[in-house]
Design a protein around this nucleic acid. Structure first.
Lengths: 121, 121
DNA sequence: GATACCAGTATACAACCGTAAACCAGTATC
DNA sequence: GATACTGGTTTACGGTTGTATACTGGTATC
């Protein structure tokens, strides 16, 4: 790369990099649906598997691990028999609320636009 | 990739589906960086290729087509020689502003958290 | 003993995302 | 003629994402 900083370097640091950070954590088909489901109330693995429509056990397991690593979701093992595992959203996970709300608002508006004005520029 | 996801019930319709719609359109490594770059000012292909650090021509071409299909970006061909092509953000593209701002805010806060409180729950 | 539920794993596979590099036509400059 | 600019496309390839199916071990129920 170049030794001399490009003019948009400032733009990158303050505008693009944090967005990439956020997208890295939230990307993929399932993470946000899982978070939304857990925001309503905590759930066990099989309950999540049923409630997050279409996800496979492998993906659910993988996504939950990543969300736990990022401190967005908490995994609690209860010493019952058989063992039950409970997933809940952390306080930090709740900090995603505004992001999720904006995404949802935009998605709803977009859906309206697609349905009612499909050909409009 | 479907423009509109399958019909479902309750929580899904009002909360999860619109988020999926939004993510379908914005997903991937490059779309939001491209939109952010174009928000600053319109650019030609090669300029974008230089300014969106790391993207390949193939991906840039592909992403621009998808963004154009979704009316977020406008492609204008100028009858110069050689032909110049100009990409600009549409008014509809600007409607993503709040989403991008929230993502950026959260990404900045997350970065702070990772840097200053890496072990905290 | 047979079945079912719990929380996942294991394996195999397909599709998509993304990279690297070469290549195209047309115009202009050296 | 050689090179470089314009805006891309083509080919080849690897890595990740995501799906499908089967399976584990322990407990409880029928």
């Amino acid at each position: 790369m170049e030794a001399i900083a490009k003019p948009q370097t400032g733009l990158c640091i303050t505008h693009i990099l944090p967005i990439r950070d956020a997208l890295d954590i939230l990307s993929g088909k399932w993470k946000i649906p899982i978070i939304v489901a857990l925001c309503v109330h905590k759930r066990r693995f099989k309950e999540l598997h049923r409630d997050v429509t279409g996800i496979t056990a492998k993906m659910l397991s993988k996504e939950l691990k990543e969300l736990e690593m990022n401190k967005l979701v908490k995994r609690t093992v209860h010493d019952t028999s058989p063992v039950t595992v409970e997933y809940s959203i952390t306080e930090y996970g709740h900090s995603l609320g505004p992001v999720i709300n904006e995404l949802r608002d935009w998605g709803l508006k977009h859906r309206d636009k697609i349905i009612y004005h499909p050909e409009e520029a």
